[in-house]
Computed example of a mutant assay.
Amino acid sequence: MDRFLLMTCFARAVETGSFSAAGRDLGLGQPNVSRYVAALEAHVQTRLLHRSTRRLALTPEGERYYAEVRRILDAVDDAESSLRDTVAPSGLLRVACPTALAHAFVLPWVPTFLDRYPGIELDLQIGDRYVNLVDEGAELAIRIGHLEDSALRARRIGMFERVCVASREYLARRGTPLTPDDLQHHDCIVYTLLSSGSTWRLSDQEVAVSGRLRVNSPQAVQEAVRSGVGIAHGPRWLFEAGLTDGSLRLLLSEYVPPLVPIQILYVANRLLSKRAVAFMDFISEAFSIVPALSADRPANDK
């Protein structure tokens, strides 16, 4: 039994979502792929996939096994590619990315990246849920904030400032906060997926805030603050349109918090594939020319 073939069929079925699509990609046909995955499950004595008429879904054991299978297949691919330096980056690259950052700055560059590297398939996993690179099969993750996991390595690709903003309508109704402590007497829009919860960092102090609206989407924060619901705190680039057209005002600008890094993370003890390196270099170059993501660069260096 060729276990490498079985693992390849399993991984491709997961990535395409069906035995039929995997069979077309691999030139094996749907019946063979289904049979090979069943043989793999029999070999490991574990159900890896839930089958239905509409889709395939990984079992919890399948999720863990897929991450290891993907690592093995990538390592084999990299080993072969290392002997052929002229071979262009290729294969499937899974990248996790926060929602707002993806829509504002990553997706606009995707067509150029795919044109430059026609051999790469990009699976961009957009969402604000924490993706575990060790267990979930993604090769890279773009994250906002400082690295805390010692099993990962990081490459910084940008820096930005966080600001407090409110609509002119809200300020006319409720007044303007003059110090961070004043925020405790205002309706603050709480972004529930923020790692610090309902605590905002302003200058060298942390302020516990509250309000009548809690949301789990940066876009919802953006829309709510423009609608006059309350005060928002987040990346300046998220509110730039409102600040530019005058519908939003900057608040507490003398209490500027530390700059926040944007980083690409990868697992420390895994060999990075050529496609991962290509993506890291590409997106780092792309971000370097965006002023909103280069807050720590001198003006003549942007």
Rank of each mutant, 00 (worst) to 15 (best):
T244N: 14
V69I: 09
P108V: 06
R168N: 10
E223Y: 07
L293R: 13
H146D: 06
Y170L: 12
L40K: 04
T99P: 05
V229T: 12
L114H: 11
S203C: 10
G242T: 05
A172C: 07
R71I: 01
S273M: 01
A102N: 07
V190Q: 07
H50A: 09
F239P: 03
V165E: 09
A67C: 09
L250R: 06
T46L: 04
V33R: 00
N132T: 06
G145Y: 07
L202S: 15
E169N: 02
R143H: 11
P89T: 13
I144C: 09
R156S: 04
D149S: 10
A286Y: 08
R55S: 15
I144D: 04
S195L: 00
V33A: 01
P298D: 09
I126S: 05
V110P: 05
R35E: 08
V229R: 10
D149E: 12
G137C: 09
L243M: 09
P218G: 12
G29M: 00
R214K: 08
H43A: 01
V134I: 08
I157H: 04
F113K: 04
Q184N: 14
A38P: 00
G62N: 02
L56G: 05
L40Y: 05
S18P: 07
S20W: 03
L171S: 14
G27D: 10
S52I: 06
T199Y: 15
A138F: 08
N269H: 13
I120A: 11
L248G: 03
L178F: 12
R270L: 00
H146A: 03
G127N: 00
R94Q: 15
G137M: 07
L73K: 01
N216H: 15
F19T: 05
E139L: 11
T112Y: 12
P31I: 10
V76P: 01
G91D: 00
L101G: 12
G211M: 08
A22S: 04
R3C: 03
D204A: 06
N216M: 14
A292G: 12
A295W: 07
S20Q: 13
L213I: 14
R35Q: 13
F282R: 00
L73D: 04
R168Q: 14
A42K: 03
E41C: 07
P118Q: 13
F282L: 00
L73R: 06
T59E: 06
P257E: 11
I231Q: 02
V69Y: 01
F287C: 13
M159A: 00
R24H: 08
P89G: 14
R153F: 02
L243Q: 05
P177H: 03
E240N: 08
A220D: 14
L202Q: 15
G230C: 02
M280L: 12
T199C: 15
L133M: 04
V267K: 11
G119A: 06
M1E: 11
E63Q: 14
G230V: 11
S81G: 06
I72Q: 13
S90L: 09
A79D: 05
G145D: 10
P89A: 06
C9S: 09
D115H: 09
P98R: 13
E285G: 08
A208F: 02
Y66D: 02
L58D: 01
A104R: 12
T86Y: 14
